[in-house]
């Protein structure tokens, strides 16, 4: 069955004076998938998203939303089909959760009932709490609830878990998974590779306004992350670090941690363990793992996603 195109972008460009915030990117998002733009801060993800949400105008390129060509803002009839979770979500002070949801529900000609939304975002027990009294995680759940008010087909989420604690982040992930299971299309931006790995059907890695890689998580790993990573806690001085680098070449040191790239795992492991034995170095928590998106991003750009 042919997939239904929800959003199509061709050669999108946006400049701020001399800075190319978005530099000729193209992609297509299909119904029911979680599409992720992954990249570090300043990569151009938010600018791309703001163009798609109608908050900014693009300089060049074509945007088709639900098959409609978009040039000067998004018409209200299309906004009815879109839900948005901005990076920074603030609402009118002094209103309660339920009043806020009712306000936004009032902007749509049809949509979910308030009780349904409260249940989806698990805010039933906070419905009469003023928005300014909500915790960060609760506020983010409210933002998702507000985005769901019009029962949209497409939901834009700009770094929806930034600044949340692990539990709150996990709650938001579960919510996104549920939305996907209910047939919603989700356009996500994030700089958390775990988030992209956990949620995405399709990932576009973005840096300096350009798409530098794309594919499903597995496709990306297959294409760029064929090696394994040996990771261990290791207390060594600078001399020993230099020595290990001379022996194994592709070695990186973190805070009391060492990362060894292994294209031939048994061989690399043997060399490493022989060196540990010879130098009587204490090793803790030795693990071998497959390359992840963080490693791939590092390989592609020479920088970490969190830089």
């Amino acid at each position: 069955m042919e997939k239904e195109s929800i959003l199509k972008v061709k050669n999108l460009k946006k400049h701020y004076h001399d800075v190319k915030a978005v530099d000729g990117i193209s992609f297509e998002v299909f119904k029911g998938e979680v599409f992720t733009l992954l990249g570090p801060n300043g990569a151009g993800k938010t600018t791309t998203l703001e163009i798609l949400e109608g908050l900014k105008k693009h300089d060049e390129g074509d945007v088709f939303l639900f098959g409609t060509y978009i040039k000067n803002g998004i018409p209200l009839s299309l906004k009815e089909k879109i839900g948005v979770v901005l990076q920074e979500n603030n609402f009118i002070d002094h209103l309660s959760v339920v009043e806020t949801l009712k306000t936004f529900r009032g902007f749509y000609s049809s949509g979910l009932r308030i009780e349904e939304i409260l249940k989806i975002v698990s805010l039933e027990d906070k419905k009469n709490t003023k928005v300014e009294k909500l915790s960060g995680g609760q506020r983010q759940r409210l933002a998702i609830g507000v985005a769901l008010a019009g029962n949209p087909d497409l939901i834009f989420m700009d770094e929806p878990t930034t600044g949340l604690d692990p539990q709150a982040r996990r709650n938001v992930w579960d919510m996104i998974v549920n939305l996907k299971e209910n047939g919603k299309t989700i356009f996500l931006t994030t700089h958390y590779m775990e988030e992209a790995e956990f949620l995405s059907d399709y990932i576009y890695i973005m840096d300096h306004g350009k798409i530098i890689a794309r594919g499903s998580v597995q496709e990306l790993i297959n294409a760029f992350g064929e090696e394994r990573i040996i990771e261990a806690h290791l207390d060594v001085d600078e001399n020993l670090k230099g020595e290990l680098k001379e022996i194994l070449h592709e070695v990186e040191f973190g805070k009391s941690k060492v990362f060894l790239k292994a294209y031939d795992l048994p061989k690399t492991m043997k060399i490493f363990l022989d060196w540990v034995e010879k130098r009587k170095v204490e090793v803790r928590d030795l693990i071998v793992r497959q390359s992840n998106l963080e490693d791939i991003f590092l390989k592609l750009t020479g920088r970490s996603l969190r830089d």
Binding site: E53, G54, L55, L76, S77, K79, E80, I82, V84, L86, E88, N89, N90, F91, I92, D93, F104, F107, Y108, V146, A149, G150
Partner: peptide
């Protein structure tokens, strides 16, 4: 205040003018 707190921005990605 609503502009500074980006409430207006949130409102205008909804279907209102």
């Amino acid at each position: 205040v609503q502009r500074e707190k980006k409430v207006l921005r949130r409102l205008f990605v909804s279907p209102i003018t």
